[in-house]
Every structure is written in C-alpha cells, then in structure tokens.
Design a binder for these strands. Structure first.
Length: 270
DNA sequence: AGATATTCCTGGAGGC
DNA sequence: TGCCTCCAGGAATATC
C-alpha cells in the first residue's frame, strides 16, 4: 500500500508529465472517492496550468496557476496511470493535458481521496493542519518530546499521523527492526539513545525505498504507464515464521496491535 | 489517555 | 472449476 516513498515516487512521475502543462480536460467518472468531489471541480481545473507538484506526508498535491491545489491520497490501492492503453473500471478520475497525455487515478478499494483546496490556505486545511512533522524534518529530541508521557505502544504512536506524518505499517515495522526496538514498548519509555537509532532508521528505510522507486506489495505501480511493479524484500514485514535477517538466529513473529499486523524479531528487538 | 471496534471497499487467497 | 469466507489496511469516528 502506498506510504510516503510511493507517494513521493508518484509525485515525481506525475511531475514529468504535468508540470507547466495546461489541463485541457478532466473527467470525474465517480462523484465520490472517499469524500464527495467539489461540484465546481471541472470549472476550476479546466484550462488551468499546473505550476508545481509536491507531497505532504502521504498526500500528493498538484498546484495550479488559479490558486487551487488538487490533493490526492492513494489510500490502500490507489495509483496514477499515465497514458493507459484503455480506461478501466476503477479509473475514477482523468486529467488530459494540452499536449495529449492522459492521467488516470485508479483505485479499486476507493480508500483514497481527492480534494481541491485553495493553495494559500493549504496548511490550515483540516487534514493538513492535524499532521505532525515530516519524518525527514524530525530529530530524536523532537520525537522524544512528542512521545513524552505516552503509554501506548511505540508502533502505534509511529503510525499516528499527528505525531509523525507519512509512515505506514510497512516502514514502521522495518524502522523498528533496524533500531532494535520492541514494537510493544511504551512510546514514552523509549530512551533518547534508542530514539537516536530509530530516527536515522526511519530516514534510511524511507530514503532507500524512494531511491528504489517505491516499494510494492500488490497495489502500487510506479506511474510509468507500465505494469512495472517494483518488489522489495523486507527484513520483517510479511515474513512471519522466517529467520531473522540479523545474526541472532531468531524467527520473525507476527502480532496484532490496534487491529493490524506487526512483524518483528523478538530476539533482536527489545 | 488509551484500548478497541466500526466503517468504507474490492481483489486475492485459501478452503472445500 | 466455482463458490464461499476471510483478510488486508489509512483515516475518521464512536464507545467504554
């Protein structure tokens, strides 16, 4: 499922096709994804020129010269397809550029969202205002401050977008493994020394995934119009029962926290 | 504050 | 082969 690296990769792919182009036409093939689309979406986007693209946490944004930003979230199964051979059942939203490219937002499970917000007030847009800092903008001391006094498991707190924004289940599991921290440990009790391992682990795991073009399970394709799925093998994620890749001789375990799977090595992660 | 449950949704996997 | 059930999860929301 798309997490920060996949969104970053998607934004970079879209940038190549969209930046500086005029939007010739849009087509909303459903009136709603996760939320209802604005009724004036078409008139605000059609004829506008794309000035910039960017990412905030797991959201991508497409800015236009009319002062609007189209914000997308890929949810569980969203991806953009570039110049698809044909429009498919789950292509919910289309953008056509003045130079003839077609972008299709495909999202079978429709956990994703599309919003059009005024760029000038974007930081106050409720979904953005609630977000914590970007992972690359946070250091151990700041993370410690944000975890202070919290008794919930570190795994769950790292998934909380208000504390740190952009991490999902896969990269949280991977970062905790690299930092040798038990996912069940109370967030507020993780020492500064350990956070000094965790923060660089988060940075590294995200940077590697971005460099690799975004990891993939089943639902993500890089936006190149091809089915060029990149698949990465993780240290712990989805490796229940398999040997730990460390030298400890342990076995990767799966537990459930907050209703979702956590994978970790009980021997290395304390 | 925290733990847990529910909702949205569909495709893929596994059982029979 | 086909039919059934279960499961995956990001974010918002509700309940205890």
């Amino acid at each position: 499922m798309p997490e920060l690296p996949e969104v970053e990769t998607t934004v970079r792919g879209l940038e190549r096709v969209l930046k500086g182009r005029r939007i010739a036409r849009i087509e909303a093939r459903r009136a709603d994804l996760r939320r209802a689309l604005p009724h004036d979406l078409g008139q605000r986007l059609t004829g506008a020129t794309v000035t910039a693209l960017g990412r905030r946490a797991k959201y991508g944004r497409i800015d236009t010269d009319r002062g609007d930003s189209l914000i997308f979230h890929l949810g569980m199964s969203g991806r953009w397809r570039i110049d698809p051979a044909e429009i498919e059942k789950h292509d919910h939203f289309l953008i056509e550029t003045d130079d003839g490219h077609v972008l299709a937002l495909n999202d079978p499970r429709r956990f994703g969202s599309l919003d059009l917000v005024v760029t000038a007030g974007i930081d106050n847009w409720p979904a953005f205002a609630a977000l914590g800092p970007e992972p690359f903008d946070i250091g151990p001391a700041e993370l410690q401050r944000r975890l202070k006094g919290r008794k919930a498991a570190i795994k769950l707190l790292l998934l909380d977008q208000r504390i740190i924004a952009g991490l999902g289940n896969i990269y949280v599991c991977e970062a905790l493994f690299r930092a040798r921290i038990n996912p069940r440990r109370a967030g507020g009790s993780v020492s500064l020394r350990r956070l000094g391992r965790l923060v660089p682990s988060i940075h590294a795991v995200l940077a590697e995934a971005i460099a690799a073009g975004g990891s993939s399970l089943r639902d993500f394709a890089s936006p190149d119009g091809e089915l060029g799925y990149f698949s990465k093998s993780f240290d712990v994620y989805d490796r229940e029962g398999q040997p730990c890749r460390g030298k400890c001789g342990g076995t990767v375990r799966r537990i459930v926290q907050g209703g979702r799977s956590t994978f970790y090595c009980p021997k290395c992660q304390r």
